[in-house]
């Protein structure tokens, strides 16, 4: 049986642990907080499993590899909601819908009546939209908790330590899944700041993630169930991530208000900010240097791409393969 040490208990670390255990490895996870939690940017994720929508700005591998995600999360956690996703814009920004449609596939164009039938609480506010029926979403923290529980049942251990991956690699096979913290050994990794809000708004019922297109302030809103909604959108080329700006809050809230004025009565439960790890092309990488494997760069696609990334890490270890995201050069 192979013993593997995984550093970082975010979505990448947990998925890699799962896929290695499924191939018969004995794993232990080392994390600076000792467990899954708010220090990982996956804690603050939207949880949209929307490979086709992401195709609007992402490269082809994101669309293709992302299609593994919904089935994988469903199998591992059972908390996946398969209700598709809906893309709308204010009538004055209809050019953005046209553009989005040209760049993506696997959608159906929907009119005001059809939008209202899908999401009655959007009413007749939007006259044109795109419905991506095959897409899904999940609640990130619930999914991480389920995944963690399964790992522990299978014999995985969690330990708290400020780990230097090289120390562990000196003793045995190690996978570095630290996200942006791995910047120390991956100089080409950068942080992309994201800001999010969690609202409680029982007056509004939405079934699926909604993307509100806007030339300057795009918004997505993901239902968490029980009247809880996650709002996100911002993408700022900046690593430091302590606080949300007032402008980001204003923009997010006013976009939500445009979606349904009832959001004006919502209670703000959480305000979050994180630094998503990304390489220059916003695609993930696996790097190997002897006993040390690095799996990183999931950008805004943590839940969408971690299953595929984890599968490929297992292929590197057990099949001695060189998967498409393998990148020896900068290791």
């Amino acid at each position: 049986m192979t013993d593997v040490t995984i550093i970082g208990a975010g979505v990448a670390g947990l998925c890699v642990a799962r896929s290695l255990m499924d191939r018969g490895a004995q794993v232990r996870l080392i994390d600076r907080a000792g467990d899954v939690g708010p220090h990982a940017c996956s804690w603050w994720a939207g949880g949209m499993l929307a490979p086709h929508c992401e195709g609007e700005s992402a490269e082809e591998p994101v669309i293709r590899l992302g299609q593994e995600a919904a089935d994988w999360w469903d199998r591992q956690t059972g908390v996946v909601h398969r209700h598709g996703s809906l893309v709308v814009s204010a009538n004055r920004d209809r050019a953005d819908i046209t553009r989005f449609a040209r760049r993506t596939s696997h959608y159906k164009e929907v009119n005001a009546v059809e939008i209202e039938a899908l999401e009655p609480d959007l009413g007749a506010r939007f006259s044109k939209g795109l419905y991506f029926e095959s897409e899904a979403h999940l609640a990130p923290r619930a999914a991480l908790a389920k995944l963690r529980a399964g790992l522990v049942r299978g014999g995985a251990t969690f330990e708290q330590a400020e780990a230097d991956p090289a120390d562990f690699a000196a003793k045995g096979l190690t996978v570095d899944c630290r996200g942006f913290a791995a910047r120390d050994t991956n100089a080409d990794l950068r942080g992309v700041k994201g800001e999010m809000l969690v609202l409680s708004c029982p007056d509004v019922t939405l079934t699926r993630p909604i993307r509100l297109l806007h030339p300057r302030i795009p918004l997505y809103i993901v239902p968490r169930g029980d009247g809880i909604y996650m709002l996100g959108a911002t993408m700022i080329e900046a690593a430091a991530s302590k606080h949300v700006t007032a402008r980001a809050l204003l923009e997010l809230l006013s976009a939500a208000y445009a979606l349904n004025p009832a959001f004006g009565e919502a209670e703000v439960l959480e305000i979050g900010v994180d630094s998503r790890p990304a390489f220059a092309d916003n695609l993930p990488r696996i790097r190997r240097n002897g006993n040390l494997i690095t799996a990183n760069g999931l950008f805004r696609h943590g839940f969408l791409l971690a299953p595929a990334l984890a599968r490929m890490v297992a292929e590197v270890i057990f099949d001695n393969e060189t998967p498409e995201v393998m990148d020896e050069a900068a290791a």
Binding site: R190, I236, E237, A239, A240, S241
Partner: peptide, 17 residues
């Protein structure tokens, strides 16, 4: 330059590029 990232030099990776 967004003001907030100017203050703590957070955008420096992007600017270096």
């Amino acid at each position: 330059l967004r003001r907030e990232s100017g203050q703590d030099r957070a955008g420096q990776d992007f600017w270096a590029m």
